[in-house]
């Protein structure tokens, strides 16, 4: 099977999401024990969402370094300011 991706674009989206996430003072990793943590961190879910969002845009026909860079930036902002409001943690967590 042929992998038809522009690896550099994915790395750019990922890298910018991580750098901006750190600049926005998101923690690098969730607190321990991680499997029960509801914290929004740079590695999870910001980095993963940046890859997923860019993959969605690629499938919609938008790709390239500018799109990847925008995706990384918007994902970091989304995770910092919107994610917790959109899918909040349960009250008893």
């Amino acid at each position: 099977m042929i992998v038809h991706v522009n690896v550099l674009s994915y790395l750019l989206a990922l890298g910018l999401a991580v750098i901006l996430g750190l600049a926005l003072r998101l923690p690098l990793l969730p607190e321990r024990p991680m499997r029960y943590s509801w914290s929004i961190s740079v590695i999870f879910p910001t980095a993963i969402l940046s890859l997923g969002f860019y993959a969605m845009l690629v499938q919609l026909g938008y790709q390239g370094l500018m799109v990847a860079a925008s995706t990384g930036v918007i994902t970091a902002l989304f995770c910092k300011f919107l994610l917790e409001k959109l899918v909040p943690r349960p009250e008893d967590s």
Binding site: V3, V5, L49, L51, G52, A55, M56, V58, Q59
Partner: peptide, 17 residues
């Protein structure tokens, strides 16, 4: 349906939400 890795990355994102 979509291909590798886009299909898996999109699935991971949707599963997260």
């Amino acid at each position: 349906a979509i291909g590798i890795p886009e299909g898996g990355l999109i699935a991971a994102t949707l599963v997260y939400f």
